[in-house]
Amino acid sequence: MLLSIENIALASGILLILIGLLGALTNKNIIRMIVAFSIFDTGVNILIVTFGYMPGRTAPIIDGAKVTAQNIAQVAIDPVPQALVLTAIVIGFGVTALMLVFALKMHEKRKSLDINDYTDLKW
């Protein structure tokens, strides 16, 4: 089945990764590059969550009615990708904030956000 949830999620994750990569490589403005990296991050998170998805199953939370301690292995999905993404989102926030602060300091120093004005590491 082509238009199932997992295929849509896979396609959109890959699409977001590509958009982020393209944006980071083609833009000259540092803020735009940071936005592109953030989009890339989201795409990777969607991909990881998709790999833990199983059709027809529910979240691994015991509620005593539909999911109980006895049948959780049969009706719930894999908890590990969700746990990884949970922390990855917060790390993504920290990395984005750090990049923005670097951009702020760079702009303070040279009054420019164009990456072409920073040639110190060029040879």
Binding site: P60, I61, I62, P79, Q82
Partner: peptide
């Protein structure tokens, strides 16, 4: 109750 929490 939340297995994700137990894993994390």
């Amino acid at each position: 109750a939340n297995v994700v929490t137990a894993v994390v």
